[in-house]
Every structure is written in C-alpha cells, then in structure tokens.
Simulated scan of single mutants.
Amino acid sequence: MFIYTGIDIVENRRIGEAIKKHGSRFLNRIFTENEVKYCFSKAEYVSCFSARFAAKEAFIKAFYQAYKKTLPLKSIEIKGSTGKPAEILLHPPDKEVESILNRIKYTFSISHEKNYSVAVVIIYF
C-alpha cells in the first residue's frame, strides 16, 4: 500500500482580508459556486472559506507527492452539510487525472477556530 499525506494551515484573517480586498474575483478563482453559497450561509463565513482553502491545499500536496501533478484549486470541492462531516467532491481537469482519481482512495479532516483553519488529507492505494 502507498500512502501520501498533505497538510495545510491557514490564518483566517488572511482569507478574510482577501475576500474584503478582492471580493468575488478571489472567491470565484478558488471556490466553486456551491462552496461560496454554503460558506456565506454561515455566520462565521471566513473560517468556512479558510477551512476549505486548507483542505484544497492539503489535497493538492498529497496528490502531487503521489503523481507529480498539480491540481487546480477549483477541481477540489469541499461539500458542507450542517451536522455532518464535510465531503470532497472532485472535478478532474482532464481524462488523465480523472483516470487517476478513479483509482485512489482518500480521507481527510478539517478543523477551524477563531484564528486558524487546518486540514489534513491522506491518499492511499
């Protein structure tokens, strides 16, 4: 079995400042429409976006370790559901990556508090 790990930590204030400064241009470059809708439905929307950013970065790091390919941020969607753990939905940018993603398994965890959000992703096959 092969195991690859990615981890990322984000200072929530940085994401909040990027949203304030760049607005929808920043959000639409990084997040899917569903992610934007979900996070803005939360009172603490900045930490919601930060946790998703960390999860995307962690997935990209683990995937790169395994396949030496960089995924676009928007190809990874973190689906939130109130009262349930988040899920990763993948939107492969091409057929080659789609073939790889169909063969791997992964698990992840995200967490956030007032100042920081963190995520870890483990890809195994």
Rank of each mutant, 00 (worst) to 15 (best):
K69H: 04
F108S: 10
I15E: 00
L101P: 04
C39S: 13
R103I: 03
A66W: 06
E57N: 04
K37A: 14
F108M: 14
K61G: 07
R25Q: 12
H91C: 09
N34T: 01
L90P: 06
Y45A: 00
V36I: 15
S81M: 11
V97K: 01
E11H: 12
F63C: 09
V120D: 00
A55Q: 09
Y45F: 10
T32D: 01
K74F: 01
I7V: 07
F53E: 05
S50N: 05
Q65W: 04
L71I: 08
F2Y: 06
E113A: 12
T107M: 06
A55E: 09
P92V: 11
I3Q: 10
P72S: 14
V10W: 02
T5I: 15
S111H: 04
S111T: 15
G80W: 02
H22E: 09
P85S: 11
K105M: 06
I30S: 07
A58R: 08
A86C: 14
I76T: 05
I123Q: 00
Q65S: 14
P72H: 11
K84Y: 13
V10P: 03
H112R: 06
C39E: 03
V118T: 14
R103S: 14
S117M: 08
Y106T: 05
Y64T: 06
K37S: 14
R52K: 11
A43V: 13
A66Y: 12
S47D: 10
E98T: 04
V36T: 14
G16T: 01
M1Y: 05
T82P: 10
K84Q: 09
S24R: 13
A62R: 06
F26S: 07
R29E: 08
C39R: 02
S75V: 00
K95R: 13
A86Y: 11
Y4T: 07
I88N: 09
D8Y: 02
L71T: 07
E17R: 12
C48L: 04
G16V: 03
L27H: 02
G6R: 07
I3Y: 13
F26C: 04
E113F: 08
L73M: 10
K114A: 11
D94A: 09
C39M: 03
V10M: 04
A54L: 08
L90V: 10
K37V: 14
T107D: 09
L90R: 06
E33H: 08
V118G: 12
F2M: 11
I78S: 06
Q65K: 15
I3R: 12
D8A: 03
S47T: 13
R25V: 08
P92G: 12
K84H: 12
I15T: 03
K61W: 07
Y67I: 00
S111W: 01
F53Q: 06
D8L: 00
A51G: 15
I122W: 02
G83Q: 02
K84M: 10
S99H: 10
K84L: 12
L90I: 13
S24G: 00
K114D: 06
K37M: 10
Y106R: 04
L71Q: 07
I122Y: 03
A58N: 05
S47A: 13
F40T: 05
F26I: 00
I19G: 01
Y67A: 03
